[in-house]
Simulated assay, not measured.
Amino acid sequence: MTFATCDLCDAHEDKLAAGTLHVLPPIFASFGRKQSFCGPARTLKVFEDNVLVRATLETPGQGHVLVVDGGGSLRCALVGGNLAQLAQDNGWAGILVNGCVRDAAELNACEVGIRALATHPQRSFRKGAGDADIKVGIAGVAVYPGDWIYADVDGVLVSRSAL
């Protein structure tokens, strides 16, 4: 699918005004070989623990975007090169992390789109805590399972329906 977030915003000003289309703040860095990606959201809420992230990426992605609400933590990474490879191998369209990633060179070699706040060399804890398929908050925007995520070089959009 070819799209431009700028064009989507222009074409759907009514949805922006109605609050069914949101533009995330421009705080996310881009990783992975796919500069543009979109798909329905699968959501996780974790904090400095990536066990659920791995378990989810081990399942068939079917073109979905994994949205990880990591609470905005900048103290460790939730996604690294091995998980990006899982995402690529299992058909995920992309990953959006409200937190950090690591292994940037490995991420950039994968055919998947990734957005995250920053890089951090330390891996996360592995306790298995968190929730899946719930409403999460990403940079002040609510994201529900099934919402559509559109990301390209200009930004990231969250839409209640496919555009």
Score class of each variant (00 low, 15 high):
31 F>H: 14
121 P>A: 12
65 V>H: 01
14 D>E: 13
60 P>R: 14
91 G>S: 12
74 L>C: 11
34 K>P: 01
99 G>T: 05
113 G>W: 01
66 L>V: 07
133 D>K: 05
132 A>S: 15
157 L>E: 12
78 L>C: 09
37 F>Q: 09
86 L>Y: 02
93 A>M: 05
145 P>D: 00
155 G>K: 00
9 C>F: 02
78 L>D: 03
98 N>S: 00
108 N>A: 10
38 C>M: 15
107 L>C: 11
68 V>N: 08
112 V>Q: 03
14 D>S: 14
141 V>T: 14
40 P>A: 13
79 V>P: 08
108 N>K: 05
47 F>L: 11
113 G>E: 06
19 G>Q: 00
121 P>Y: 04
141 V>L: 09
74 L>N: 10
2 T>Y: 09
72 G>K: 05
138 I>F: 07
145 P>V: 03
136 V>A: 07
83 L>Q: 09
22 H>Q: 12
128 G>T: 08
77 A>G: 06
131 D>W: 08
162 A>N: 12
52 L>Y: 03
134 I>F: 01
124 S>L: 06
143 V>A: 02
126 R>Q: 13
120 H>T: 07
86 L>M: 15
40 P>Q: 15
160 R>H: 05
13 E>Q: 15
77 A>E: 06
102 R>S: 13
2 T>C: 06
87 A>V: 08
42 R>D: 00
80 G>E: 05
83 L>R: 04
6 C>P: 08
96 L>W: 04
156 V>H: 03
43 T>R: 12
50 N>D: 15
12 H>K: 06
32 G>Y: 09
57 L>I: 03
16 L>D: 06
70 G>E: 10
101 V>W: 07
137 G>D: 12
71 G>C: 02
11 A>T: 10
90 N>G: 08
144 Y>R: 13
92 W>C: 05
84 A>L: 11
128 G>K: 07
36 S>T: 09
158 V>P: 03
39 G>V: 01
157 L>W: 04
139 A>G: 14
138 I>T: 00
30 S>G: 11
155 G>R: 05
147 D>W: 01
9 C>A: 13
158 V>W: 05
142 A>M: 07
119 T>C: 13
24 L>E: 10
97 V>W: 05
